Computed example of a mutant assay.
Amino acid sequence: MNRKGYYSIQMQAVCDNTRKIRDLYVGYPGAVHDSRVFRNLPLCNSLEDKCGRYYLLGDSGYPLKTKLLTPFKDSRQLNYNIKLAKSRYVIEHYFGILKQKFRQLFHIKLRNITFIIHFIRAACVLHNAAIDDEFQLNENIDMVNEVLPPEQDLDFVDEEEDRDARRVRDDIVNDLRM
């Protein structure tokens, strides 16, 4: 709990280029690091099946995996980091749209954690329904033009997977040079 008695809840979402939610988890306390939450989600262990030939894009708060591309921690691949940040604008824009559509998300007045989680999920379902009904949003998309500073969660490192993930990311970096 912070100074004013407010709590926060983690919401981790995967959305596609149409800003439609493809995977959602709500429920961990806000103080839990993104990478710890991610590692405990079913999505983490099913990335190969769910992604197929595609990749998820994550910020530096997430672990590098063969199907989850994250920025380089140093500046040796600045071009890749910038392209990754520009591509990640979709999820940032999604969260902005969701909060604008459902202003109650800024300060939820519910007290029961189960109701709060259901409320957040319902907002996401309604958001997807609006996309399915081709409800058009006339909003400007602000591209992310900066690379955020790295966050680290050093409690878990899988060297084998890390090596494979680095190889995949390096291959993509090489493709970007063409």
Score class of each variant (00 low, 15 high):
residue 1 M to G: 14
residue 2 N to E: 05
residue 3 R to A: 13
residue 3 R to C: 05
residue 4 K to C: 01
residue 8 S to D: 03
residue 13 A to W: 01
residue 16 D to I: 07
residue 17 N to S: 13
residue 23 D to R: 00
residue 23 D to T: 04
residue 23 D to S: 11
residue 25 Y to P: 01
residue 27 G to H: 02
residue 28 Y to N: 06
residue 28 Y to M: 04
residue 28 Y to S: 08
residue 32 V to H: 04
residue 36 R to I: 11
residue 37 V to H: 02
residue 39 R to E: 10
residue 42 P to H: 12
residue 43 L to I: 11
residue 44 C to S: 15
residue 48 E to Q: 11
residue 50 K to H: 02
residue 50 K to D: 04
residue 52 G to E: 03
residue 53 R to Y: 03
residue 54 Y to L: 07
residue 56 L to N: 01
residue 56 L to C: 00
residue 57 L to N: 02
residue 58 G to M: 04
residue 59 D to R: 03
residue 59 D to Y: 01
residue 61 G to T: 04
residue 64 L to Y: 10
residue 66 T to E: 15
residue 66 T to K: 15
residue 70 T to V: 15
residue 71 P to K: 12
residue 71 P to M: 14
residue 75 S to K: 15
residue 75 S to V: 13
residue 76 R to N: 11
residue 78 L to T: 15
residue 79 N to M: 08
residue 81 N to G: 06
residue 84 L to D: 04
residue 84 L to Q: 04
residue 84 L to N: 05
residue 87 S to R: 08
residue 88 R to C: 08
residue 93 H to W: 10
residue 95 F to R: 06
residue 96 G to W: 02
residue 96 G to C: 05
residue 97 I to F: 08
residue 97 I to Y: 09
residue 98 L to S: 06
residue 98 L to P: 09
residue 99 K to E: 07
residue 100 Q to T: 10
residue 101 K to S: 12
residue 102 F to S: 02
residue 103 R to D: 08
residue 103 R to K: 12
residue 104 Q to D: 07
residue 106 F to C: 06
residue 107 H to F: 14
residue 107 H to Q: 14
residue 111 R to P: 09
residue 115 F to T: 09
residue 119 F to V: 00
residue 122 A to L: 13
residue 123 A to G: 10
residue 124 C to G: 07
residue 125 V to E: 03
residue 128 N to K: 09
residue 130 A to H: 06
residue 131 I to T: 06
residue 132 D to R: 14
residue 137 L to Y: 11
residue 139 E to R: 12
residue 147 V to S: 07
residue 153 D to W: 06
residue 153 D to E: 12
residue 155 D to R: 09
residue 158 D to L: 09
residue 159 E to V: 15
residue 164 D to Y: 12
residue 165 A to T: 03
residue 166 R to F: 09
residue 166 R to A: 13
residue 167 R to N: 10
residue 170 D to P: 00
residue 172 I to R: 02
residue 174 N to Y: 09
residue 177 R to C: 08
